[in-house]
Design a protein around this nucleic acid. Sequence first.
RNA 1: GCCCGGGUGGUGUAGUGGCCCAUCAUACAACCCUGUCACGGUUGUGACGCGGGUUCAAAUCCCGCCUCGGGCGCCA
Length: 434
Amino acid sequence: MQDRTYTADAEPGDHVTVAGWVHEIRDLGGIAFLILRDTSGKIQIKFEKDEMDDELVETGLDASRESVVKVSGAVEEEPRAPTGVEVTPDAVEVIAPADPELPLDPSEKVDADLSTRLDNRTLDLRKDDVQTIFEIRSDVLRAVRDQFREFDCTEINTPKIVATGTEGGTELFPITYFGEEAFMNQSPQLFKQLIAGSNVERVFEIGPIFRAEEHNTPRHLNEATSIDFEGAFCDHTDAMDVAEGIVKASYEAVQENFGDELEVLDLAEDFEVPEGEFPRISYEEAIERINATGELDEQLVWGDDLPTPAEEALGRDVGGHYFITDWPSEIKPFYIKDHDDDPELSTGFDLMHPRMELVSGGQREHRHEKLIEGFEQQGLDPDQFEYYTKMFKYGMPPHAGFGLGGERLIMTILGLDNIREAVLFPRDRQRLSP
RNA sequence: GCCCGGGUGGUGUAGUGGCCCAUCAUACAACCCUGUCACGGUUGUGACGCGGGUUCAAAUCCCGCCUCGGGCGCCA
């Protein structure tokens, strides 16, 4: 439709053809208004019954809500119209009628449950705030890519069908690959390391990860988008700098490109760009601070993983993004390097938002013998990972990286209650369709 | 995987054994209304997740199943 004008571009004095959905019809008697909605916004179409062709009026006013219509007419300035302009139609065509019984209400007079919304995502996305979530998601991913390029990174794509997992076989979705057992990849971890070890050196990937865990929470998905970084000749502090830069660039993009929308929409009321450097708190200090809050029933001791209430208590105490560094080696995976001067301490770090963990990263073990030892210590068979370990025999530089949960980033930026709000078609324990 | 709490018109809800051929909002239909902007008014349409049980009587109590939400563990 080359002759179609977006509703937002209709200027007084123009004769336009607009096309979109019937948002609402308000019939006042002698005069009636049809509100037509497209991706750019809404515009009012005026029907004066006594002064206009009966058939045209009937076609326009008989259209059910959410039908797709095409309207041609003169655009006039009209202070009484919601957008200051309205169209007096000379032609109306219903292109695709909608069943009057809608599975949810896109005009948002009545809320729908999340599961009803996800079952009818097309209609759900016709709401301004829902559409804006995904416009923002798109822009955040653009900003993330731009920022990685600032950091001299090359974007890569690694396989999602793999022969072995990253950390064993328990959380993987098994599939059949030409009669052989294979899995959906839970993380690009091993592949991105193999590329960082080439002279590409610094890489990032934005792609899906698959986890077969049967959790059912507002912050977990079985298919998620991972934002991964890996850099040769980087240590864990460099990786933290990159993670911090990526998160801040995301907030800045939202502020710059969607600041006005956030003001208007019922979305992200508490939005603010994080200021200053993210504090880097050692695991040991984190435990002390959590215990000092007195919010936990039991005191934490060295070696404990941090349970959800502990993370929340520390989040309230810190009041913004922060890193937890220097985790005990035993609770971090085999590919994370220990500190040279203390093998009990790892270079692993997490980047936390007060609500939840966003990033997990660290410096990697690049020494072949140590890597093999690590496999054995975690009860994994190094032979199964030979495609990975053998490349550590041919000059693997020190390197570091992280994985950032893409949906968690969007969720925390916008203050969404449920991570499913940040995915068009989420995959969770119960949902495989649509 | 474990532990809680739910499923009532198209949508969102009220309703803890009879007072309910089930409330309200929205939607839809009809009528009235010439400037609405969540238009307003009147009338009407439309529902107790599935199966079994208890009872004179079940949306309501019990059992099983399906399904949704939340918490925990673990994670991004």
